[in-house]
Design a protein around this nucleic acid. Structure first.
Lengths: 142, 142
DNA sequence: GGCGCTATATAGCACTTGCTATACTTTCGA
DNA sequence: TCGAAAGTATAGCAAGTGCTATATAGCGCC
């Protein structure tokens, strides 16, 4: 699994690409969440992850299993979940991207609460090129 | 099923909302595609839909069945697929929204081909408020 | 009119992401 | 220390979206 997901692969067409991005979106959300919890509480417990993701605890466990399969996290039974180096890098990138998208939407005149909601869906589909364009807008046109 | 999907429901949080949008995205893509094919060829055949969506023909059939369940399309065995009034309205809205998002990204400096790719994923997560903000940018700042 | 090609439908499988119910471990207080 | 509460894992189910393989219907051509 490459360090960056979306930008490497070039699926057949825009629909296939969007499907690809959607499959990765969940992983990105979980990784960011685990990173946040680790920073806040020192560790990420399954129960906390489930609560914040608004899913049941077994659902969280199942998704965490996928994170482990993908090499993004580790965990031992009845212990907390920890990000691998790769997972931590992904979490940082996801968090930065989220902040950029939210800030960009707000700059475009979108109310903050709606910017936050929309960004959660949009961010997973923003390529590096588009993200850079957003950053350019944020930096230049004060 | 309301005429507009995303903007009506208010799921528990941003993650639930993003999941909601994702479930609707496929329907939107199919509906838009069927609308396009009907306009171009006079009717939308399963084989053409499958080809353009880059999925197998049985997969297209299954998704069309869901469209029919949701009241967005109709079809008789071994005949073409047709949009209901509601489906046609949705198709129009989806097409307009897609155009707006693409145009907006291009205005932000994103190359056209990348704008097209990213828009396919982004558009399904753009609320009416954000879409209006995009339109405002397109109209005002010439 | 019937034969074959094409289009469509159906069956059956895999995987993902949800859920509830239940079993098991850990932890903490009495 | 031991038992209950809390946390975690597992089992089993549903729905959605993919796929391949196969059956069936429609259509055109001889």
């Amino acid at each position: 699994m490459p360090d960056t997901f979306l930008d490497e692969n070039k699926p057949a067409n825009r629909f296939a690409r969007a499907r690809e991005a959607q499959a990765v979106a969940l992983l990105e959300d979980y990784v960011e969440m685990i990173g946040d919890l680790s920073a806040e509480l020192g560790e990420a417990r399954v129960a906390d992850i489930a609560e914040r993701m608004h899913v049941s605890q077994p659902t969280a466990t199942k998704s965490i299993a996928r994170l482990k399969r993908e090499g993004l996290a580790t965990s031992r039974p009845y212990r907390g979940v920890f990000l691998t180096d790769e997972g931590a890098r992904l979490a940082d990138r996801v968090r930065d991207r989220h902040r950029t998208v939210v800030a960009f939407l707000i700059r475009m005149g979108v109310p903050e609460d709606i910017a936050e909601l929309d960004a959660e869906g949009i961010e997973h589909h923003v390529s590096q090129v588009t993200l850079s364009a957003f950053e350019a807008v944020l930096n230049c046109k004060t």
